[in-house]
Design a protein around this nucleic acid. Sequence first.
DNA 1: GTCTATAGCCAGATAGAC
DNA 2: GTCTATCTGGCTATAGAC
Lengths: 207, 207
Amino acid sequence: MTDSVEPASVQGSVGQGSVVQGRGQDKRKRLIDAACQVFYAHGVERTTLADIAAAAGIPLGNVYYYFKTKNDLIQAVVEAHLSEARAMLAAVEAAHDGPLGRLKALFGALADQSELIATYGCPQGSLCTELDKLPDGPGRAAELMRLPLDWAERQFSALGRADARDLAVEVIARYQGSAVLASTLRDPDLLARESARVAAWLDTVSA
Amino acid sequence: MTDSVEPASVQGSVGQGSVVQGRGQDKRKRLIDAACQVFYAHGVERTTLADIAAAAGIPLGNVYYYFKTKNDLIQAVVEAHLSEARAMLAAVEAAHDGPLGRLKALFGALADQSELIATYGCPQGSLCTELDKLPDGPGRAAELMRLPLDWAERQFSALGRADARDLAVEVIARYQGSAVLASTLRDPDLLARESARVAAWLDTVSA
DNA sequence: GTCTATAGCCAGATAGAC
DNA sequence: GTCTATCTGGCTATAGAC
């Protein structure tokens, strides 16, 4: 890791799992947030604990007071992503009444991040892809895909579709695939166009 | 890298760029083939040159006679993937007459690899995702996505569709996304089902 | 061209003072 | 709880015999 300046803040605020936490633990949260951002921008493997400690403004040795190993930190980052994903889905449900509006709201929010996604890929998807090839097997990262998949399936079920699972797979796959293409080709417009086409398709599905 | 036994051969024969090559260069080819497989199974970052040398049955020091740096080997692997992809698309074009048959043939071939893809992801897609976050920028890896994308676009254009580019993006994105989901969830059936739905969708597009 | 031995570096992890 | 200094191992890359 040689570059020190990043193209502005990379993520909102992934992290913060438990509501009640001793106030000494805010360094733990800072470490997780820093790890989320640096992992996303540069990849898990390539990121060193020194990078994360520097990004969090914490000396390297102190990291081991909060996380015994790098793998422990990675697990904590996955949990933080899960928490944020759950919160986002809950917020979408609270803000919209019908299943169709909710589905479109979710993908509208993703389209708003097209610049970021075209630079670094889908935060959840690229993490899953990377963790997939790590030694310890599937792990909890799979939950990161199951969560939006199951959520989308429930929305399609609420629309009365018997093929809700297939539709959920299609909609999530189209987003994940668009993210892969957009980031590989560095083309945010590709993601925006495909998002619009997915929205149009969703309207035809409700019938 | 500690494990030595893999679940059988991982790829057919990625590699072999130039037709004419001195017969001392078959070690170079063996190294590229070995790198393709080990990169695919364990990821580029995690794979060491010692892993590749061992897989190719070549002593570590000798690797540097053929490739000055690890990055050079990575580039050679990308070129090998490009060659194989071009060959596969050419074979599909030779074996099928109409654009629709060609598109369906391509995705049928992918569905046949669902077990492998559900284990390690899409060979091209996971490589692109991983190289995306490496230091040297986009590089030639983007070509790996542009190649099938442009090819699909030509097929849809031949069908007389004005929105050929959008349709190409959709079909490739659905495959790439399915690969991400299938490998994350370790579910080959997901890929098979979505492939079938893409095939059905292709029939409606021709109209 | 091939291979052994090893230099040099850097990352994960620990020891222990404060 | 916090931080400095350091150990240890492994990986890229090189030197140089054959």
